[in-house]
Write a protein that binds this DNA or RNA. Sequence first.
RNA 1: GAACUGUUAGCUCAGUCGGUUCAGAGUACUGCCUUGACAUGGCAGGGGUCGCCGGUUCAAGUCCGGCACAGUUCACCA
Length: 886
Amino acid sequence: MPYDPRISEERWYRYWMENGFFHSTVDRTKTPYCVVIPPPNVTGVLHMGHMLNNTIQDILVRRARLHGLNACWVPGTDHASIATEAKVVAKLKAEGIDKRDITREEFLEHAWAWTRKHGGIILEQLKRLGASCDWERTAFTMDEVRSESVIRTFIDLYNEGLIYKGVRMVNWDPEAQTAVSDEEVVYKEEQSKLYYLRYRIEGEEEEYITIATTRPETILGDTAVCVNPNDERFRHLVGKRCIVPLVNRPVPIIRDEYVDMEFGTGALKITPAHDINDYEIGYRHNLETIDIFNDDGTLGEKATLFVGRDRFDARREIIPALEAAGNLVKIEDYANKVGYSERTDAVIEPKLSMQWFLKMKKLAKPALAAVLTDEVALIPAKYKNTYRHWMENIKDWNISRQLWWGHRIPVYYLPDSNDFVVAATAEEAAALASAKVGRRLTPADLRQDEDCLDTWFSSWLWPISVFNGVLEPENEEIGYYYPTRDLVSGPDIIFFWIARMIMAGYAYRGQKPFHNVYLTGLVRDKLRRKMSKSLGNSPDPLELISRYGADGVRVGMMLCSPAGGDLLFDESLPEQGRNFTTKIWNAFHLVSSWQVADAPQPPHARLALEWFEQRLRECADTLEVSFGQYRVSEALMILYTGFRDDFSSWLLEIIKPAHGTPVDRETRDRCVALFEHFLQLLHPFVPFITEDVWQQLRPRKKGESIMISRLPATRSFDVALLEEFERVKGIIVAIRNIRKQHDVPFKDSLELKVKWHERYPQRFESVLLKMGNLSAVSILPAAGESGDAPSDDTLSGAWSFIVDTVEFFIPAAGEVDVAAASAKLTDELAYTRGFLASVMKKLDNEKFVNGAPADVIENERKKRADAEAKIRAIEEQLSRLTAPKS
RNA sequence: GAACUGUUAGCUCAGUCGGUUCAGAGUACUGCCUUGACAUGGCAGGGGUCGCCGGUUCAAGUCCGGCACAGUUCACCA
C-alpha cells in the first residue's frame, strides 16, 4: 500500500491537536524553549516566504521538544494597519462606498467584519504545513491585551519624554493618505527627464537665471532660487529677485552651501513644502512655504494653476505652458531614484505635516550593544554590519499614521485648544484634563487625536505582549518564557521589526527578547527573480502540499536554503522531497513485511547492525553540531544521505533475508530500534511520515507519539569501526565494478582471494560474502612471509583490484584482458608516483622539516609509506599481468 | 556615492586552525539494471586552473593587497 500523505497528514495533525501536544504550560522543572511567530498579516494568505520561514521554526521547535525542552511556539497575526485598511477601502469602493462619506465608527465596523471573515485563514493554512504552534495562545495585535499593551506603552514613553509631536517633513503616501516612516519608502531607479527652466530677473528685460528640475510642476510652490556662495557665475545676481514662471511671483536669489555648483546649471529652485532639502534651506533662510498639493496628490488652491489636476498630469501639462511662455530652455534624459510607498507602491510625496515621533537614540543604545557583543546573535553574522550602521544613524520614528484601522493615539485635546492630555481611556483623560484646567470636564468635552499608531508600534512589543508582559510585568508566564530563544525572520524587516523588538525588550524588561535571530533568505524562482503575483512565478503553497505532501514540500524547501541565502525554488525540490518520503515509506514497508523467526542471528546481520549503531551515533552527533550553528539545510542533508545510503542501501541490504525466508528476531528488533531512532532524528523535518511509520513499527499505546518522545542522548562512537566499514564498502564496490567490467551477473558467485594485510577488514568477511555474492574468501600470505607463497598459476588468470593498499584477486570466469588491466594499473601507478613525488618534495625540503609542526611531518611520512606500499602493490600486479604464463 | 558580503563542478552550495588522497555534497548528466522494499528506484561513472593579477609562507581554495563582476544595505544631486 503506497503512502498517502493527504490521509496521513490530516489524521496525525488531528491526533496531535486532540492530545494537546502543542500546548505548553509553565513548568519550572523543565527548560523553556520559546519561539514567537513573526505575525503574518491578519487577512493575508500563505505564500512561499511564510512556508520557508515557518518550516524552519517548526523544525527548531519540534527538535527542542524531542530534546525534552518545554517547547512553546506562540502564533498570532498582525492587524497590518496600512495593508488592511487599503484592502477595506478598496472593497468599500467596489461597493460604491467612499471612505470619506462614512464615519470612523462605520469604517471600523467594516474593517472588523473583513477581519473576522478573512482573519486567521493564514493560521489554518499553517496547520497544513504541520506547524506545531500552541494554538491556545494565538494572539492578535489588536486584541484586548495587545491593544492595551500598546496604549500603555505609548503613555509610558510619553511620560518619559520620549514621544513628541511636531511639524516635520514626512513621507506622504497619497494613495493611502497617510504618513509613513523612512523605512517604508523604497527607492527605485527611474528614467526621467531633467527640465531646464529660466526665470527672468526682476527689473530686467532679457536677463535670466536657469535652473534644472525633475519636477517642473513644483515651481508653483517655489519661494526662492539658490546658488552656491562661491559660484562666481551668479555673483551679480545674488540679492536680486527673479520671477517664478507662469505664476509670476518674485522670489529672492539666495546663497547656500548646499547647492552643488557642478550639477545642472548650478542654480537650484527652492520649494520648501515639497522637498526635504529645500525645506531645510527654507528654514535657514526664513523662506515662505507654499504647499501646492492636496493630500491625495492633486494640486490644491495654493498652486493657483492646474488646480485639481493630479501631480503627474500637471507635470506633463505644465511643459507646453512653460514653453509657450518662453521659459523652457531644454530637456535632458536623466536617471534618478524615486521613492515609492512600500505598501501601496504610490510615489511618495515629501510633505510637511504634524506627526508624532518617538525619540530613538536612547532606546537604540542597549539594543546596538546587544548585537555587537552577540548577546543577541544574528545568523548569519554578516547582518551585524547592516544593523550597526542603521542603529548608529538612527532617526526619530514617525509613529503616527493618518489611518483608522489600528491603535488610536491616546491623546485627548482640551476644548478649543491644542493642549492635550495622554491617557488610556476617555474617562481618565477627562479626569486629567479637569485637573489641568481647574474645572470639571467630561469625555465629551475632549477630542481624541484622529491618528493611529504605526503597525510596528504594536509588533515591536510582540515577544513581551504575547505573554501579557506589558500590562502584568511580574506574571508567571513572562517570567518563565521570556527571553524567547530563537526568532526566525527575513532580513527585509531587520529595521522595521527586529531592531525595534530588541529596543523594546531592553526598555521594558531590561532584557533581550530572544537569544538568536535566524535570518532566512528570500524565496526566488529558478531565474533568481523574486516571487511575485505579477510575474505569476509563485506557486500556491497549498497546491504544492496537496501534490507533494507537507513533508515533501518541507524537505524541498530545506534542501537548499542556508541561513541568509536565497532559496531558488522550483518544483523539482518538493518532488525530491516527496521522493525522499517515499523512500522512508518503502524502507518501512520492507521491514514490516518480514516474517520473524526465533532463529540464531547470522553474523553479517550482527556486524551490520553493530556498524550502523555507531554510524547513527555519528550522525546524531554531527546533527548536534549543525543545529548548533543553525545549519539546518546541512542537518537535513546529513539525514537525507544517511537514510538513503547508510540505512537503506547498506544496512537494510545486508540484513534483509532472502525472499521468502524469515528474519531472526534479534535482527528485526535491533533494526526496528535503530529505525525508530532515525525517525526521531528525521521527525522535525518530516513530522507526518515519521509519526505514521513510528506508530506502526511496533504496538503503541493511546496518546503515544513520536513528537513527544525523547531523543536518546548523544553518545560517543567507534571511529575505528566506522573506518573499517568504509573499507568493507570499498571492497564491495570494487567487486561490483569487476562484475560490471566483465559482465558477470550478480547471481553468479565469485571467489575472492586477499593478500594478507592488516587493513583487510577480516572481521566483516560475512558481510563481504553476502554483498559480493562470494562463494569463498581465502587469505594469501603476505609477501615476504615464509610458507606458501601464491603461485603465479593461482593468480595469473585472475582479475585484481586494490583497496586501501590491500590486494584482492578474483579468479576470472573468462579471459583476462591484459592490455586493459595493465593500462589501468599503469595510470594508477603514474598518479601514485606523482603523489609520492609531491610528498617527497616536502620531506626533502629542509625548511619544511624544520618549520612545520611535528604532526604534520608525521603525516607526510605516513603518506610516503602508504604511497610506497601502494606502488609496490601495483608494480607487483603489473609484473604478474605481463609475465608469461607458466 | 559609501559600507558590507560574495565569486569553488552545468546549477545550488559546503569547505572549521593555512597542512592527510582536499578539491567535496546535492542536483543535473552518462552507462548498465524493470533483481522479490522502492523506476518517486538500484548500481556504477564522468565532470572544477577554487573570478583575475600580485604578495606573505616550507606550504594558499583558505591569509594580505589590487582589479573585475555580482548581490545586499545605507545615503542621495535638484
